[in-house]
Design a protein around this nucleic acid. Structure first.
Lengths: 341, 341
DNA sequence: CTGAAAGCGCTTACAG
DNA sequence: CTGAAAGCGCTTACAG
């Protein structure tokens, strides 16, 4: 087993001091060009690579970003992660990934680990439990130690830091209006991501559209997929539902599945609009009309933001970037008089 | 902004030496119990947490695992990652995640980063390009420096290290036989994950089943989803296909979609068996009969294996764990005389 | 039982 | 232009 060459060893081989080797390899202008060349050559020949632990211990920067997401099985977070990884690695940063599983405890543990491991910054989307219980005490260390943090998608006003979201409220309002324009009379809002900030925003958007339409809003939160079909069916029948705005991809597809399995036609009897452009909605028959959330772009933007913070190249004021979304028209909705591809 | 308390500072407050503080906090038997208690109290009061960089620099262990997966958008890898993260964090290890995007270059870059960052071990699934071109030179440093590595799912005989796979060959043979028993006459093998080890194994399993059935095997590899429908349709018609063994979840669902869109009934006209138990196959209508790959378990097992290696608690011989899979019967296949839930 | 010293592998003021 | 020294924050043989 080989071991990693050190500056000390190179210095010995070259018969110069460690400082000289270090400076030469860092291209310091102090060093004679010839010496530099000689040193670099030997370093290369010995496969020298600086020990990052030692460098970080001195320099205080680890070139590592911490990422905490609530889960990785939904396309939205998988895509965000992909965007984060791509951008981070292209900019020379590594990522430590933590999955909170929607739990405050795991989120808190993860934050502590990231702080202890000296990440340069943290990118995260809040756990549902954190948002439901408004528990933010576990962020204290992050702020105490002034570690830059960027929240995306699931954000909170309590936390003063950079944020990235889409225009959830407006787009949901727009989605609701579109269903109406395409002929839907009884539109409900369906969500399984209860208690999250995005759910709240989307619900507000839906509700205000309904008010504008002088219709009574009807919100259905289903907390457990075991009762999904049963719960949804009851509402479909009772309220004569012909339009559904679903807050995420899985619930949208599940709603279509339930409806189809019980003889409803989509979009003829019931139109559905969901969120997230993922394989699930794309491949279902009918394909899902959905709000494109630009998950990868959110991830990439989060990395740019956090690195800007780390390198202090952006304003001191916290930034809230709102990404403008659009509705991706597919086959779970009827053509309306307005837009359609 | 606060800063992190150091041993030096604690020593000063306590009027003892740094060594004593260090030993006390590490519960060394050398230290007087009373002194220990006093030191721990002050450490706690000052929120002392050891600097991991310094500890790692001394001790050579970072409690960090590197993970490289080809992509994160498919349920299989997302689930594996989830299993890895869960097990790793429960055992006190952090994970650095890299996504190779099926590219040798990115895989090579990732390996270098992980080596340079002093991870204790690496868990990975090979990029398609790596397997297609049989390029393994970029693994040299990993082996030179004796960094433990565990391969899962996409493995290679060229790399001498621990491995985890499922019994791909046998289960695909079984899947093919089952389609036959349920009445299928013209069964094809469909794959979009060409050039991977798992594809090869599954293909072999399929082919040997076909030989056993004295039927001519027909393998359809589609390299680009833009031509999926067109390519598949041609074969469906030409060969009068009534059974499809698909090598992954997305191709299985895409095949069902194509067939349904062209008037075939599933499973009456064409039966389909896929791989991976994910939301995609679960929610499609009809739901996909599929090979349960125990992705999360593979991830968890990989972590156990690598940590065993790191702590040298397992045999020196490389281990190949083969996880026994089973077929999850759902609605894309007909009841056969044998098993059905 | 406590502490001074050396060292992990670097970087960087400072001296010459 | 080169090098000796101090220091990042720890741990651990060794001395007392």
């Amino acid at each position: 087993m080989e071991h990693k060459t050190t500056l000390k060893e190179l210095a010995k081989i070259l018969n110069v001091s460690i400082s000289t080797v270090s400076k030469a390899l860092n291209d310091s202008s102090e060093i004679n060009p010839d010496t530099k060349a000689r040193i670099k050559e030997v370093a290369l020949a010995n496969n020298y690579v600086p020990n990052e632990l030692a460098q970080s211990l001195k320099g205080k920067k680890t070139k590592t970003l911490g990422v905490i997401i609530p889960e990785v099985l939904s396309q939205f977070f998988a895509k965000s992660l992909h965007g984060i990884e791509t951008m981070a690695s292209s900019l020379g940063y590594k990522i430590i990934i933590c999955i909170s599983n929607e739990s405050v405890q795991k989120e808190s543990d993860s934050l502590n680990i990231l702080v202890n491991t000296n990440v340069d910054g943290i990118i995260m989307s809040l756990a549902r439990e954190t948002q439901a219980t408004e528990s933010y005490d576990h962020f204290k260390r992050v702020f105490d130690y002034d570690i830059p943090i960027v929240l995306f998608d699931r954000v909170s006003d309590t936390l003063v830091c950079d944020k990235i979201t889409v225009n959830d409220r407006e787009i949901t309002q727009e989605a609701t209006m579109e269903l109406h324009k395409s002929g839907c009379k009884n539109i409900i809002y369906l969500s399984t991501i209860y208690d999250t900030s995005v759910d709240k925003q989307r619900q507000i958007g839906y509700t205000s559209a309904m008010r504008e339409l002088q219709s009574t809003p009807e919100v259905l939160h289903i907390k457990d997929y075991s009762y999904f079909e049963e719960n949804l069916l009851k509402v479909l029948q009772k309220s004569n539902v012909d339009g559904i705005v679903a807050a995420d991809e899985l619930s949208a597809v599940s709603a279509m599945k339930t409806a189809l399995n019980h003889g409803y036609r989509i979009p003829e009897d019931i139109s559905v609009i969901g969120f997230t452009n993922g394989v699930l909605g794309e491949n279902f028959i009918p394909s899902l009309t959905t709000v494109e959330q630009y998950a990868e772009e959110q991830g990439r933007t989060a990395v740019e933001l956090i690195i800007g913070r780390i390198q202090k190249t952006i304003a001191t004021e916290p930034v809230h970037k709102i990404i403008q979304t659009s509705i991706l028209h597919r086959n779970s909705t009827k053509q309306s008089l307005s837009l359609q591809k």
